[in-house]
Amino acid sequence: MDTISDEQLLEELRTRLNQSRRSLQDISVLNHKLVEMNRRLEQSESLKSNFLSNIRNEINNPLNAIIGLAGHLASLVNDPQAEEIAGLIHAEAFSLDYQLRNIFIAAELEAGDAQPEIEQVDVVSVIVSTLDNFKAVADAKGIRLAYTLIGTDDAGRLRFPTDAEKLQVVLSNLVANAVEFSSTGSEVEVLAGLMDDELHIQVKDQGIGIAAENLERIFDRFTQLDTGSTRAHRGHGLGLSIVKALLDLLQGTIEVQSSPDVGSVFSVTLFPAAFDESAVTFAEGGNLFLFDELDEK
């Protein structure tokens, strides 16, 4: 058996020590690169979030000015033709604003920026303001908007801990769909109530309905059952996917019952979430979240 001299052993130890040092240096360089990459990713996410916020304001503010001014103009003029044109401007600007807001919300959800802000919410105010937003669209189609409440307090309010803005986005998309797919002379009704500390909301319409085989698909992003260049209904297929994503975020559920040519019922269930007692309550303020920038100026 060959023996190793002390000098050979020391040389081998030096070699392995140098290898360990080089490995540590390589690990240190790699770690530095990972830290730098993470910093750039965080910076990119921050820039993307700021961009979304800025572009949303840059687009929404002038659109809301157009909506407000068109509505005001329609109430001032006595000429039927001018009033009709002002009404068309209002309707088209409202539709564009609504669709763009959905696109921005979808982008926020994709980026992970749509975090819930839980507070004590007056659900009645959310419902009333949402229906007010769609009154002009519903009136143009001859559709009646109504709501029914169960379990209100002495002041006629339904208080529930959730995210007020996200709740209004959910309700707005459901009402928008109900109005879009309802026929002239029909009714869209919102029912809301508290049962066993849970908030239950239903949006009912008497519209074209949905076939059973399509009920699961309607919550997929960009899915539209009415497709092609000759489709009869507007939209980009984001609304119900946003509803589902926001309810998942709020740990809520949604179910749908529908029959072709009879109508649809979308049922939302929300469970109470913990909230800060000092948070501002969404109550009589009304239309605070959608189409509100004009009022803030």
Rank of each mutant, 00 (worst) to 15 (best):
I27N: 10
S28A: 13
S28T: 11
S28M: 08
S28N: 10
L30V: 04
L30F: 02
L30G: 12
N31E: 10
N31V: 07
H32I: 09
V35A: 12
V35D: 05
E36A: 12
E36D: 11
E36H: 08
M37P: 00
M37S: 09
M37Y: 07
N38E: 12
N38M: 05
N38R: 14
R40V: 15
L41S: 08
E42G: 02
Q43T: 07
S44Q: 07
S46A: 14
L47Q: 08
K48W: 01
K48M: 13
K48A: 14
K48N: 09
S49A: 13
S49R: 12
N50P: 01
N50F: 03
F51Y: 12
L52T: 01
L52R: 06
S53P: 00
S53Y: 03
I55M: 14
I55N: 09
I55P: 01
I55V: 13
R56A: 10
E58A: 15
E58Q: 13
E58F: 04
I59P: 00
I59T: 11
I59H: 05
N60P: 00
N61A: 12
P62C: 10
L63T: 03
N64A: 02
N64H: 03
N64D: 11
A65M: 04
A65D: 12
I66T: 08
I67Q: 03
I67G: 00
G68T: 05
G68D: 08
L69P: 08
L69G: 04
L69M: 08
L69E: 11
L69D: 10
A70N: 02
G71F: 02
G71I: 09
G71Y: 01
L73T: 08
L73S: 05
A74E: 11
A74N: 04
A74H: 03
A74S: 09
A74F: 00
V77T: 15
N78A: 10
N78V: 01
D79G: 07
P80Q: 06
P80T: 05
P80N: 05
Q81C: 02
Q81R: 14
Q81F: 05
A82W: 00
E83C: 09
